[in-house]
Design a protein around this nucleic acid. Structure first.
Lengths: 231, 231, 231, 231
DNA sequence: TATGAATGAGGATTCATTCAT
DNA sequence: GATGAATGAATCCTCATTCAT
């Protein structure tokens, strides 16, 4: 019987919550980030997880559902944790920035989860609802957290007056670069561009340049040439 | 996916160069960047190009071959143009940086060509040889150019002493972010995150922060906590 | 790529009208009536038609679409023809009834098309929209035609006063019986119940009893026992 | 479908008879008649019966076995009841016919058991041995009973001289029509064709027409055109 | 050159069946 | 006796690729 035959049956699909999913999701994370969404065969995920293909369907209604679970458990929950850390912070904003960037590296950037952004970039156009989910659950909250940090620095006079939204994007941009490298090119070309492979060091430099660039005092070198002349 | 198994026979196949390919590649560029490699059906490419599916095979041995042609031919000309800008420049390094970034935006970032980086991020792991090509033809030259610029600034005392390789990466990171947004999420979610959609403005802020961050004098705020201090 | 991946693509499915369909439908008719809807594998239909599985999808979007085509070409068009015959008839209504019943036998009952009603009975509950289609395109028009005939006989005083709708159903009932036998049991059990296998003779007897039963004069034997006593 | 390939091993399997089966069969009857053989999932049967899927296999070796049990056990008792009515009858044959038809309606036609003929029509070709069983246990005895009744009427001069076998078939035809409607189309299309939905009334009309049609005297209207006359 | 009908391997999904508990 | 998690064969459907015209 095919799908079409299924009309009047009730949607008999709810997730179990007891047991296996953790391993399934982690297997799926690996294969999805390695091969992309369409390139992933559920056979391979099953094999990687050490179960049969049918077992996947015991826990996830279909490929898309599994994919969503991977995104959810890979990014949404780490993000929650990080947010908790931010809220009770009480030191210099610069230190908060440092903590945030290093936290991202430790929990996501240096782990397999960093493959997810790569995946989402590739598949966003094909899965608008997944893209919406990702934006709402990951990007916007992440942005909001970073914006609040920047705004805090500006408010406390630690940073010069900048648009927090823009700076938040720029703060995150190297995350994307590192993710893309580690799970895309870097995998293909070992040894090339070692500076990119050392994400931790690159992020430290990123922080320093960013914080200096946000410092209240000195003007940019050659600022006279800025477009329209506004500093 | 299958990553091309079928044609194991003799290589009785070379690219023609006379007539049609230009339109085919441009049609393919559009579909590939919209839907990704696996998501692209040759039917759609053919329709977009206004030819029959069989015609594609007159010019490209298979899907992979067409894909590679898209990446290759989609990059050659814009890259040349941007590089041309750099070579004979003789002014403040900061202005050179500005010119470079704005040039990227005008020739690549704001055009359909920016879809290619997105595509490569997604498919690098599946097409190692293409990734190598892309790294060698695009990333390394681009990096080298940017590194030379940074080194020039350091040498001339315009920038403080930094690792040109790292800074070059950080300089390029927002390019990736913008490309990913314009050709991935942005397409799916109209209206959200307008700050990201305005690539030109975002890049201006990027330049300003970067250049300030590279200025020789003032220390970063909260510099006491730099790595080596308490985490 | 699976269905889910297909979102933003246009529905690229319209029937071709030039060539092959006739053979495909007749192959499908045979397999469908032999094995039922769910029991029919498209591989088998393709083999029966002497084409590949993929070719089926060149002409019909999916199994259901093929099934509908079978119903349409197998019943709807013969029905149209028969209706034409009825409209210009100008003799005794009894003769019209005879012509109709014999026409059914010749064009449907004795051909493979008689397997379709069997199929529809079995699948109506699983395919409500197909059931609706069948009722609207086959049953209701057929009923309407028969009702008009009965009403004609009543109006002309050839039949006694009866409910044309009920009589139309009763007139059609043996069609169903014969179809079911020829394409269900009869196939399984050769030789048993020869009276049922000779559809033509059975229908002649059916006509005679029906017409006598509709004759204006004589009461039913033992009519006194009729429920409520209405004749 | 596959018509049961899997268990090619030893027949280490006989039916238990103690406890559960009654509920299982009645649950299965409902699902099978609603959805057909292939359309029935054992999950649903188990759920309907309030047991686990595994439990089904404690009582029935496989789906086919359960199906056969449904047909067998679903027919035995109602059939017995109706047959009981006939045997000691001593009145006008017409009244016997009336009693028989009404009895069918009350014990079978208006109950869930009428779903079984529908099921058998659909599956006879796929389950020849079940078809044989059904013919031998249901159709032939039913036919024989009806034939005897008709023959009785003819012998007693109550009916004109007809072929009892043919008339028995024609007598039963509306049973099939009503069963098919109630368990097939009628379920899908509520409200349409109310004349068909009112089985009791339809059968009364059927009886009247049939009995009048069997009355010894008057010829059929337009009898000159009977077969052998001009077509 | 160009076409587009035909192909068939490949992958998602279903569900009857098994079996350890 | 019961359970229900796990299995994997079976089947629909897709689409890259071929080839006769």
């Amino acid at each position: 019987m095919t799908l079409q035959t299924r009309h009047n049956a009730e949607p008999r699909w709810q997730r179990r919550k007891n047991a296996r999913p953790a391993e399934l999701v982690s297997a799926a994370l690996q294969i999805f980030t390695e091969r992309g969404y369409a390139g992933t065969r559920l056979d391979d995920v099953a094999e990687q997880a050490g179960v049969s293909k049918g077992t996947l369907y015991l826990y996830y209604a279909n490929k898309e559902d599994l994919f969503k679970a991977v995104v959810r458990e890979g990014l949404v929950s780490p993000l929650m944790e990080v947010r908790g850390l931010i809220d009770q912070f009480e030191g210099a904003t610069a230190d908060l920035v440092r903590m945030l960037v290093r936290g991202w590296w430790e929990r996501i950037g240096s782990t397999g989860h960093a493959g997810i952004p790569k995946l989402m970039i590739a598949e966003a156009a094909n899965f608008p609802d997944l893209a919406r989910f990702y934006i709402e659950e990951v990007i916007l909250p992440g942005q909001a957290a970073m914006e609040r940090i920047i705004a805090r620095g500006v408010a406390r006079g630690e940073f010069r007056s900048v648009d927090p939204a823009q700076v938040a994007h720029l703060m995150a941009a190297p995350f994307l670069l590192i993710s893309a490298w580690r799970h895309g090119f870097g995998h293909a070309i070992k040894g090339e561009l070692p500076t990119l492979s050392d994400g931790a060091a690159l992020l430290e430099t990123h922080i320093e340049i960013l914080l200096r660039g946000l410092a209240p005092a000195s003007p940019a070198p050659g600022a006279a040439n800025a477009p329209g002349g506004r500093a």
